[in-house]
């Protein structure tokens, strides 16, 4: 197990190196730089000042040299200074990581908590009205554009019904938990709604397969209630592929949450990333990329460990 973990972490580090190198190279190929955003192309700066700032930012170096410099600094714990905000990247990310983790974590938790029972019930009575309704619900969640869902939810719940605020993480001057919860309701609902579809589908198909197994009939013959049969015996076998699906959603979730964060003015790293790209803020883009890569790789390692704990047939080699 320890050896396995050691190897996984090594391979994760290699993956991170490759990911950051690719992103850095792609960024260098993008039209326009931070200097262009500063007004370098619009005539704001003289040519001499343009060149001086380009040099100060290191933008006159070849891409491999810039990446090498960035990597060396990162290994020393220095993520650089954001071009736009003028403060250390680590500081900006530290401010914005918590809100994102809260939003994504709560959204995913609700997706699992709701998607799991809906999927199980759909699999328990395939072809029933419940099954068809849940399929429709899952399909809607998977296919409806997130942008449209956000606007629709805001229109009905914030504007028409005046039930929830439509922006921000809290009311100014109100740091209470209740206020946070009220602000979380809409964005979390959207994330949960859009992620639940995949989980319902996955749970349904995993459970359908397991529910046909003979050992469940044996359990029933022994006099166990249907709930006990499903929860104690059926679900245990089905949970591995469901967990895989839930974890596999994390990378996509980080990306799609950016849209939700942007529209709801939620101060997360997704919205930060959008602004960073718009401003060609390379140190910040790389910092956020690194954080997302670490989260995704850690989620994968966690998934591997959880898999082994849940399914005794899996061994670590």
């Amino acid at each position: 197990m320890v050896r396995y973990l050691y190897e996984r972490i090594l391979s994760a580090m290699l993956t991170m190196f490759i990911v950051t190198a690719i992103i850095y190279t792609l960024l260098s190929l993008v039209q326009g730089s931070a200097l262009d955003v500063m007004g370098g192309s619009g005539g704001e700066m003289s040519h001499a000042d343009y060149e001086a700032i380009r040099h100060n930012l290191g933008l006159d170096l070849p891409v491999w040299a810039r990446y090498g410099q960035w990597l060396r600094n990162v290994l020393r714990g220095d993520f650089g200074v954001s071009y736009r905000y003028g403060v250390p990247v680590g500081e900006v990310i530290a401010q914005r990581f918590g809100p994102s983790a809260l939003l994504i974590g709560t959204g995913l938790a609700f997706a699992v908590l709701l998607g799991l029972p809906i999927g199980i019930m759909a699999a328990h009575r395939p072809g029933s009205l419940w099954d068809r309704l849940s399929s429709f619900f899952a399909l809607a969640g998977m296919t409806a554009p997130r942008f449209i869902i956000c606007i629709t939810f805001i229109y009905f719940f914030s504007f028409k019904l005046r039930l929830t605020p439509s922006m921000g993480m809290h009311t100014v001057g109100n740091a209470s938990f209740g206020d946070l919860v009220i602000h979380l309701i809409l964005p979390v609902s959207i994330i949960a709604f859009s992620k639940m579809g995949y989980l319902i589908k996955q749970t349904r198909s995993a459970c359908l397969e397991v529910f046909q197994e003979d050992y469940l009939n044996t359990a029933r013959a022994k006099g166990l209630s249907e709930t006990e049969v499903i929860l104690k015996h059926g679900l245990r076998t089905a949970v591995a592929p469901i967990l895989t699906q839930a974890m596999a959603e994390i990378p996509e979730l980080v990306g799609s949450a950016a849209i939700v964060e942007k529209i709801f003015g939620w101060p997360g790293i997704g919205a930060l990333m959008i602004e960073a790209i718009r401003n060609r803020d390379v140190p910040l883009i790389m910092g956020v990329t690194l954080v997302i890569a670490v989260v995704v790789l850690l989620a994968n390692i966690f998934l591997d460990i959880a898999y082994g704990l849940l399914d005794p047939r899996v061994s670590y080699r």
């Binding site: 942008f147 606007i151 805001i154 229109y155 914030s158 504007f159 439509s166 922006m167 921000g168 942007k262 529209i263 003015g265 919205a271």
Partner: peptide, 11 residues
């Protein structure tokens, strides 16, 4: 506060 331009009217 920073908000998306699509939310201007709603807010």
């Amino acid at each position: 506060r920073v908000l998306d331009s699509s939310s201007r009217l709603t807010v």
